[in-house]
Nucleic acid binder design. Structure first.
Length: 259
DNA sequence: CTTTATGTTGCGGG
DNA sequence: ACCCGCAACATAAA
């Protein structure tokens, strides 16, 4: 589930429900999702602390406490952040923070993500690794710089150290909306194509963020890629698919040409 | 049983 | 130094 739009949804949930709240208790039903601490360490860092305003960079959620440690969250492919007030525990709830008014739950089927703890003042990059400009606010000049060098377009869009935020679905939507083939070499992209990719990235995210996901609309690739015989929502040509950058990829062979 | 899944990392090779 | 492909991680569903 989580690409930038999903994680931005989690950030907003956190801002609405958890910011300003005091942690009463931390519970880790799956302690292996605590990546650089233990249940005891987590409890010591969070108990009786209040959360401050959450931040997001790419697919990373950063939730500092007031004058204390910062919790860093990554959701892998299947994670989500939930707010629960009176719901029974779920088998995939890996971490539960009890706040005064409810519970914050990290629900994650495959344990590919997790939670890290940063000491006050510690650089988040220790955990996140280098991240490019956040895709939600990236300028055209920044994107052009990110799409420089060797490699192909989709790989570059997925490389978080170039642009932080796009995942497999966003990358496909952006290439399709911009009418650029995902396998196009970076060096071959024209200035016009840079502009189209930038506009498509901004547009896809502007539409997806309010939904908290890449919406499976019929006029998006996401809405048709699971059809038995998916066609381009614009021109009705049968979509092509294959592996690009090691990920399952869909494109319109009529509108996104390699030549 | 096999394949696939919206992510990241580490490794070998070009 | 940079980039690619691939396996691995963990788990469920088709």
């Amino acid at each position: 589930m989580p690409e930038l739009p999903d994680v931005e949804g989690f950030r907003r949930l956190f801002a609405d429900r958890a910011a300003g709240q005091r942690v009463e208790r931390a519970h880790a039903p799956a302690p292996d999702v605590l990546r650089n601490t233990t249940p005891q360490g987590l409890g010591r860092a969070l108990r009786h602390r209040r959360f401050a305003r959450p931040r997001r960079h790419g697919k990373w959620l950063l939730t500092p406490t007031q004058d204390g440690a910062t919790v860093v969250w990554h959701f892998g492919m299947t994670g989500s952040l939930r707010w629960a007030t009176d719901e029974p525990p779920h088998a995939h709830d890996r971490l539960v923070l009890h706040l005064g008014s409810g519970e914050l739950r990290l629900r994650m089927m495959r344990k590919l993500g997790g939670m890290w703890l940063l000491r006050q003042g510690e650089d988040p990059a220790v955990v996140t690794g280098p991240l490019g400009p956040d895709a939600l606010a990236i300028t055209k000049a920044e994107l052009r710089a990110a799409l420089t060098g060797r490699g192909v377009l989709k790989s570059a869009l997925l490389a978080q150290e170039r642009v932080a935020g796009p995942g497999n679905l966003v990358a496909d939507e952006v290439c399709w909306r911009a009418r650029v083939h995902p396998r196009r070499g970076l060096a071959s992209l024209t200035d016009d194509e840079h502009g189209r990719v930038h506009g498509a990235l901004r547009g896809v995210l502007a539409d997806a963020v309010p939904e908290g996901r890449v919406p499976p609309r019929q006029d998006w690739l996401t809405g048709v890629r699971d059809d038995a015989e998916p066609v381009c929502p614009r021109c009705r040509t049968a979509l092509d698919h294959g592996d690009v950058a090691g990920r399952s990829t869909w494109w319109c062979p009529a509108e996104q040409r390699l030549d």
